Computed example of a mutant assay.
Amino acid sequence: MSFGIPFFPQEASSEAGRIDALFYTLLAFSAVLGLALAGLVVGYAVKYRVGSKADRTGKRSRSLPLEMSWTIASLVIAFIFFGWGAALFVRRDHPPADALEISGLGKQWMWEFRQPGGQREINELHVPVGKAVVVSLAAQDVIHSFYVPAFRIKQDAVPGRTTHIWFIATQPGRYHLFCAQYCGTQHSEMGGWVIAMAPEQYAAWLNSQGEGETLAASGEKLFRALGCSGCHGASSKVRA
């Protein structure tokens, strides 16, 4: 009986299973080691309790091979877990070259996304199943954090810089999107949905939204409106 607690949360991305495997292996190892140590503590506490007839005359003894064995074994196990985690960490920073890139902006207190064709979304992000998606994140005001538990991904959106997170959705559905960084009084209300769709449904959805202004087009307008093109434009006669 789970009492509504998701002890085994939904896995809906290509990386979720890999991350869960590391987590549950670490959990099992920690549980076994913790129970073994707790058993020794309780066993010796009972054996040598006040008034017991346990033999206390034995001399202290040390075994160098035994001490070296558990020290080396601990080192090897630590490096195994480190290497496993490092491989996952490096993988999360190297998306496939053909990934679909979507822009995301966090601001108090909402998420705004822009598809490659310029289609905008508020607190919803539509993505195709089976396709690598890179979300390029920025923040308008304070630090926010893009967090989708079912995908096992989380990445901060930081003012003044662009960060990236990628995933491949494996199942169609609606998945909760949260801000995992306290960002002000309405932080708890800053949520949304990632909607994973079959590729043909995603294409139909894009067509139904029409075309919007891409980031490149918006940037070009600012480039000219702010006078940057006077010095930096391809045809300008004055050079900065």
Rank of each mutant, 00 (worst) to 15 (best):
A203L: 13
T185G: 10
A240F: 15
P65M: 05
C228E: 04
A198P: 09
G17Y: 01
K221W: 15
K59E: 13
G184W: 13
G219A: 09
G210D: 08
F7W: 12
K53N: 13
S13Y: 11
A196S: 09
A203E: 06
R18M: 10
T185A: 14
Y147L: 11
E220Y: 09
F3E: 15
G58H: 07
L100M: 14
V134W: 00
R114K: 07
A204C: 11
A99Q: 03
R56D: 01
V133K: 03
S145E: 03
F23M: 08
G117H: 01
P96R: 12
E67G: 04
L33I: 02
Q155M: 12
E211T: 11
G191W: 07
E189G: 09
V127G: 01
P172E: 00
G184D: 07
A21W: 06
G51M: 13
Q186A: 07
P9I: 15
R91H: 13
E220R: 15
H187A: 05
F89Q: 14
L206T: 12
E211P: 07
A38Q: 00
D141Y: 03
S188G: 13
Q119C: 11
D156W: 04
V135R: 06
G117A: 01
S145R: 08
I122P: 02
A139N: 05
S235R: 10
P96V: 02
L64M: 12
P6G: 01
F223V: 02
T57Q: 10
G118Y: 04
S145Y: 08
L226Y: 15
L215P: 12
L137M: 08
W111E: 00
R18G: 09
G83V: 02
G43V: 03
I168Y: 01
L26R: 02
E211A: 05
Q108P: 00
T170S: 02
G58R: 04
R224T: 03
